[in-house]
Every structure is written in structure tokens, then in C-alpha cells.
Amino acid sequence: MKTRTRHGIILIGVVSVLTSLLFLYNSSFTDAPEDQMQSDGHQMDILQQQTSHLEGYSSIIDHKPLRMHCKSCALVTSSGHMTGSGRGAEIDRKECVIRMNDAPTQGYQRDVGQRTSLRVVAHSSMQRVLRYRLELLNSSQNTFFIFWGPGNYMRQNGKGLVYNNLRLLKQMMPKLQVYVISRLKMQHFDELFKKETGKDRKRSNSWLSTGWFTMAIAVEICDRIDVYGMIPPEFCKSPKLELSVPYHYYEPAGPDECKMYLSHEQGRHGSHHRFITEKRVFANWARMFNIHFYQPDWRPAPVTKNSTDS
């Protein structure tokens, strides 16, 4: 009884510290400093190399590399397009199931499945993950968690507030498999964005989305990726688009997905996710790798060859 009480007190402390941290982070979101270092780029063929261990992802306590490889993966987005899909059993048949942030499965199994092999979590979603810890953490001993965040919050020198809270979480739940993305790997993801889009992420006032990290990680881990709930790049520009689809399947009264995507894509002041730009990149990757899109079902159009090409 005393042990449970002590753990409860510690957990309340974690939530309190984390709440303060997220308030601090949100208040300085647009001008939070990041570590800067020149990189020689991050080629897609490097991402594609599936090995028994993956560089750039280290466990929170002993800093061991992530060891994960799957022949088939279901990458389940949080999109409202998953509502009523009935894809749950199909998703659960994949060797590995990848989810993002705090997207739940309980109550949504018929549409999104119930298994989770890997969950990629943004630093800004930590509070919500803790809030739903009974589902997302307590029953997830077989799930790998990869957390990402800006360098000043993920430092391992005692000054990274998010990193420190993850260490405390791991001490409270020692069986939890918690990994973080290294500083160099984060820089590689930035370089990958620039290589694929021709745009410098920082100069364009952009923040990579959790979807970007998740798709890139999946390319490293999976031989085949079946993506569920991701719309094609031009979907939100369709003149026939009338149906409102929520941004998250578990928040039916939340913001409209296309309105969210378009407002971020067109935003020029402050920092924004470039959701549609990222989806153009994913469509390009699907032309090179074993990536397939469902709910809605679509495939990238073939690249049209210039008539002057021989």
C-alpha cells in the first residue's frame, strides 16, 4: 500500500513538472532556440537500410540503440478518415503496428486495431500520454516509444527538461521501452526535408510533424509500409470536397482536417507544420519504396516524362 502511495505521489510530481514544462515550451514555441550544426545531408538510401539496430535512437537510461525490423508494417494515422473504416482486423494482422502521439485504440478497435508495436511521440504530446497512461503506458510493455523534440529540451547534460522527465518516467516504469532521437539524427531529418523539398525548415518557419518522423522511421524499420488514413497531397484542393472530416478520429468535434492542413501550409508568420508539402514527399517515397495508402485508398500518379527527354 505504501509503495502504491509513493508511486502515486511520484506520478503526480511528474505530471506537475511536465505541465510546467509544456506551459514554458508553449509560451516560447515560435522562438525557442535550437542547436545548429552543418550536416552533409541525409540520403534516402541510408534511411532504407534495415539492420538489426538503428543509429540515432537510444534508450533513455542505458543509451542502447533501437533494435527493430519488420517485414510488414501498418502505419496508422490519427485522421478522422479512420472512423467507420472497419480496418482494425486488417491492421492487427501486420507484423508491426505503428501509431503516433496519444492516439487511442480502446473503443476504436474495429477501425484502427488494438495492437501497437511502436509509438512515435512529440515532446508536446507527453502530457496527454501521461493523462491516458492506463491505456498507453501501463499496458504497453511490448511497445517501443520514440520521443522527439527540439534540442534544448532533449539535452542529456541535465538541462533537457523533457529528457529529464522521460528518465523519471522510466525509473517509475522500468519495463517501459523508451527511446529518444539523438541530436545528430534530428539534424539529419532537417537535412532530409531540405533535400526533398528544396526548402530550409527553419527559414521557412516550419516544424516537422510527428507524421514526418514516423514515416521516415518506418522506412528504416519496415520492408513494406501500409499507411492508413493519410490523404493524397491534392485532396484538400478538390472542388468536390464537401464532407468535413475531423483532424483526429478520437476527437469528432475537433478541427476539420483540411482546414488544419491548409491553414498550416499557407501560414507565413510564426511556425507551422507543412502537412501538404510532407505528403508530396511521402508520395514520392511511395514511388521508390514499398509504401501503400489506404483509407482513402490511393496511389501516387506516375511521374510524367518531359516530351523532350529521349
Rank of each mutant, 00 (worst) to 15 (best):
C96H: 00
H123N: 15
F144D: 10
T210E: 08
K305L: 13
W285S: 05
I91P: 03
R299V: 13
Q50T: 06
G56M: 04
I231F: 02
W207L: 11
E191D: 15
I46Y: 03
N290R: 14
E55C: 02
S72R: 14
I217R: 05
F29K: 15
L166H: 08
F189E: 13
R167S: 11
G41W: 03
L208K: 08
T116A: 05
L161Y: 02
L184M: 06
G160Q: 00
L137F: 03
F293E: 09
T304E: 14
G88I: 01
V281T: 09
G211M: 09
S20M: 06
C236Y: 05
T51R: 13
K240F: 12
L136H: 07
L168T: 06
L136M: 04
N157L: 01
T143W: 00
S78H: 07
H81N: 13
S79D: 09
Q38L: 14
L192N: 10
G88D: 00
G41L: 08
G86V: 02
A218V: 02
R268L: 12
Q127M: 04
D40L: 12
G88H: 00
S58N: 09
V14L: 15
R131H: 12
A103R: 00
D111M: 01
V303A: 13
S117Q: 05
L168P: 02
P233K: 06
A74H: 09
K237T: 01
E242Q: 10
F147R: 09
S139L: 06
Q38H: 12
H53Y: 14
R115V: 01
L118Q: 05
C222Q: 11
C70P: 05
G229Q: 03
N101W: 02
R6H: 09
I221C: 07
L66T: 06
N306D: 14
Q171P: 00
